[in-house]
């Protein structure tokens, strides 16, 4: 009974578990898509916020390298998010260090 991402502050992760979202998908409820869209949009906005902050502070290159390394490690782990695409979720903790 855990959210998609433990440290995500989006409405979906603060309110609902993976088990509940899984149930909504299984019974073809449109709320499943709505909640995932909320999460993914929040996630992307956080991602771009980190990029903006990194550029502003002159450490974008360092951010880029670390990001690519962790992405490669993630590829090797073959973790896939609920919507079938490689998840940015594994990097959220990493992003937060840059804020």
């Amino acid at each position: 009974m855990s959210p998609i991402l433990g440290n995500c502050t989006c409405y979906k992760c603060q309110s609902h578990t993976k088990a509940y979202i899984n149930h909504l998908f299984n019974v073809h409820e449109m709320l499943a898509r709505i909640l995932l869209e909320i999460h993914n949009t929040h996630h992307y906005l956080a991602f771009f916020l980190v990029i903006r902050e990194a550029i502003k502070d002159g450490r974008f290159e360092k951010f880029r390298q670390t990001f690519i390394q962790s992405r490669r490690a993630h590829h090797e782990g073959e973790a896939v998010c609920a919507c079938g695409h490689i998840s940015l979720g594994v990097y959220i903790g990493f992003y937060l260090r840059f804020l």
């Binding site: 409405y11 309110s15 509940y20 149930h23 909504l24 409820e29 449109m30 709320l31 909640l35």
Partner: peptide
């Protein structure tokens, strides 16, 4: 029916003053 009001989040339901939700035992 399936443990959700179709298309609405819990916070939206609270916003509009929903007091009780009905669920279907069979489903």
């Amino acid at each position: 029916t399936q443990g959700t009001i179709k298309a609405l989040t819990n916070s939206q339901l609270e916003d509009i003053g929903c007091q009780i939700i009905l669920g279907n035992t069979y489903h």
